[in-house]
């Protein structure tokens, strides 16, 4: 054996040699194929029975713009209701009280177990069940007047969303280490304060990606409210094509707007994720 400091012969010096660039033939080939297919599809649509000038003309018409505003207003309000219900139901579900637990489980079962469009129709037609609603002796009103398309859509979408959001929230709360509850209890916090101050802020980090997903779903689910006359984007687009018969053109207009909104939401979600990642991503000082 040689003495330790001397290195063995036969291993050439590789420093200064570059790693060669590979040609990646298959990537080029498959990319070219995809471009060809897309070009064929674009050609088919260009030569099909579509008047593209109508798409351009109706893209920014007032009724369509009102529709997208109504869509966003409804999506935001219904999502807020959904998140509020979701948090409350998730807390109930994780509570030691069997009554609260069962109520929460029943709510999730009922509203997740029936189609959203059916729930919207039920809310809108509530007047058929209860002609007048109110608090006995204090206030009452005709249900048809109260249950406007707006309110029916808000309740239908929000309450349905709450059933899904509660499961997302529950998963988020379960993801927080049990030691965090104990540490909060050890400094005298009750269950609800520990949830609000310690557990929920940490759960938010976990639930924002699925909630972003849910919100994108909500933006599109508002289109179902067109069946109960809520003047959102799809409903307004339909109203235009009932008059001028440019069905495909207006559906494309609506589709473009949905795509645009969802494209804007994705970077917003990333900003929100960064906000709640406090204390986890920063490099050590």
């Amino acid at each position: 054996m040689k003495p330790a400091p001397a290195l063995a012969e036969g291993f050439p010096d590789l420093s200064g040699m570059r790693i060669a660039r590979e040609p990646h033939w298959f990537r080029w080939l498959s990319a070219a194929l995809i471009v060809l297919v897309l070009a064929a599809i674009a050609r088919a649509f260009a030569n099909g029975q579509i008047e593209w000038s109508y798409v351009g003309r109706f893209l920014t018409v007032k009724v369509i713009l009102e529709g997208i505003v109504n869509t966003m207003v409804m999506a935001v309000l219904a999502m807020m209701l959904g998140i509020f219900l979701g948090i409350v139901v998730a807390i109930m579900r994780l509570s030691p009280n069997p009554v609260l637990k069962s109520v929460a489980a029943g709510y999730t079962w009922l509203f997740r177990g029936t189609p959203l469009i059916l729930q919207l129709l039920l809310w809108f037609n509530l007047a058929l069940v209860f002609p007048t609603i109110g608090i006995p002796g204090l206030w009452s009103a005709r249900a048809v007047d109260v249950m406007t398309p707006f309110l029916a859509a808000l309740l239908g979408l929000g309450i349905n969303q709450g059933a899904y959001t509660s499961e997302v929230m529950r998963a988020g709360m379960l993801s927080v280490d049990v030691g965090q509850y104990e540490a909060a209890q050890a400094i005298g916090m009750g269950r609800l304060r520990a949830l609000r101050r310690i557990v929920l802020p940490q759960a938010m980090r976990v639930v924002i990606p699925p909630l972003g997903n849910e919100f994108i779903g909500m933006v599109k689910a508002t289109s179902l409210a067109s069946v109960i006359q809520y003047p959102e984007l799809l409903h307004n687009a339909e109203n235009i094509y009932y008059a001028n018969s440019r069905v495909i053109e207006l559906l494309i207009v609506a589709g473009l707007w949905y795509l645009l909104v969802v494209s804007i939401l994705t970077p917003l979600q990333m900003l929100l994720e960064r906000r709640f990642a406090r204390g986890t991503l920063r490099p050590a000082r």
Partner: peptide
């Protein structure tokens, strides 16, 4: 009740094996 137990807990301080600091707070 939970409040009464919380009040009793204030008389003791607990240090955990795994620290259990709140990671979202300084």
């Amino acid at each position: 009740s939970e409040q009464q137990i919380g009040r009793q807990r204030l008389k003791t301080g607990m240090v955990f094996q795994r620290f259990n600091l709140f990671p979202h707070k300084t």
